[in-house]
Design a protein around this nucleic acid. Sequence first.
DNA 1: CGCCACTTTGAATTAGCTCAAATTCCGTGG
DNA 2: CCACGGAATTTGAGCTAATTCAAAGTGGCG
Lengths: 282, 282
Amino acid sequence: MHNTPSAQTLVASTSTEFHAHSVGLAHPRQVPRKAAMPAVGMDANEAGQALGGQAIAEVLQLLNDTLAPQRRIVRAGDVLYHAGDRFANLYILNTGFFKIVNLSPDGREQVVGLNFRGDWLGFDGIAHGHYSCDAIAMDTGEVWIVDYEALMAACMQRPSLLAVIHQAMSREIGRDRDSLMSVCTLPADARVAQFLRHWADSLARRGMRADQITLRMTRAEIGNYLGMTLETVSRALSKLARENLIEFAEKGRREVRIPDLNALSAFMQRCLGSACPAPTLQ
Amino acid sequence: MHNTPSAQTLVASTSTEFHAHSVGLAHPRQVPRKAAMPAVGMDANEAGQALGGQAIAEVLQLLNDTLAPQRRIVRAGDVLYHAGDRFANLYILNTGFFKIVNLSPDGREQVVGLNFRGDWLGFDGIAHGHYSCDAIAMDTGEVWIVDYEALMAACMQRPSLLAVIHQAMSREIGRDRDSLMSVCTLPADARVAQFLRHWADSLARRGMRADQITLRMTRAEIGNYLGMTLETVSRALSKLARENLIEFAEKGRREVRIPDLNALSAFMQRCLGSACPAPTLQ
DNA sequence: CGCCACTTTGAATTAGCTCAAATTCCGTGG
DNA sequence: CCACGGAATTTGAGCTAATTCAAAGTGGCG
């Protein structure tokens, strides 16, 4: 792998393209060795991975009540914060979609996260007092701005608020690790399938329809996020369409219908199976 | 890429075997217990990256004073917690060395993190009330066990303690994202070079000698962590040795001397350069 | 209507994987 | 102390998934 950052530019961070957001990797997490697996029907991982729509609403409510955060409307391409900016705020995404882009000194650029409604942004800035990546809106949306110091002060009064934040950070850590696992262990086709599945799950969890998703990123951005070239993304999508696992809307290739989510997961497994006899790791 | 989880097993997760490095005894281990090693001569570059040895000592001191955490001695192969275990504690690594392994339901296994003295373990469990990965000792060491609830209670009294924890979580997020970027944007050779560089920097930051590192993982484990096969790791290391960027100890190939860290970084850049004209990713 | 960015698809190339064999290590037991 | 055996490592030789290069197709928008 290793797709060179070069030529095929990631397009547009700041471009005007319409939004995008996330999906990441969803995939089913471990069957907890000894555990109580929750939520039926939904991916184990995803089940707890994030709060459901209801919970998100509650958190937003709580924040609104305790801190009356400032609002900010963003449009596609707007940069909420830049790598290197002084850290002062955390942000909560009320509507819209963001991508998180890591930058290396030598010019490499990597999409390391995609965020949906209810997600927090800016945790990366706490460690060093400066954000370590760019947060870029991929669509029109609204973020709530929370002063970190004020938030901490509020937390001292309300432990439940603190718990909410810790859960959000913990979830972020889990998501990032899942991303790494996907990139390291899945072949390209499976990664794309999982990407779609994750996106759909993310929408579903928030109460939005999951059978009809609008990719808010170019093939180049998806490829960057998944660690492959835009051509490979395109080929993978074409293959999925050929096998009727997805359908493109009549016009434009950004709208994707997913008739059967489970079929997508099955495809993923098939990709894996066709190369690995029997793990038995450990 | 996509190295199949199959055949080449990752060795040992849950096993109790001493696996590996029995080498453990015969080499320069980390600094003694409570020595507050000052970390002189550390890499300027890395200085701000994370807490230095001094800061780590202070944090340990603070924790010791406020919570008198329980201690646990671990030996190579010991599992601190399993994916699925009920979350109750966070852990701080006082001495030793851990790997964090993510598991997927279908048997894939992915090393998603490596931890050194001063690092926290267990944040991944906060989100869902269950740990989402395995934490496995790779050498003899000591961890301090901190009851999460008690820690939160203590934080309500001491905001500075809370800040410490948030910084640790934030750093973890940053590290994970850097890993993803490495895997996605660097060719195999560069990834191995960066891995060594990172390891050395981690040691230096903690006041240990960085020119002489003992890899406590098999080639298979390193490969898994870096998203490549063990053969590729081996070839990359051989290449680095051929170019005199590293030297193996007379006996055994687990001990690596790094004459010049900057040369390693230069090598990395060279790997990149030899394939990419000019980014300009805007 | 026409430009431009995005996408698709094909063909050639290659980094990294798979398979295989030889070598070195290291722990164990005689 | 040395021989034996399993595990880890190295190295070579194909093979292949994914990349690179190239060209044609499509859609959105001024």
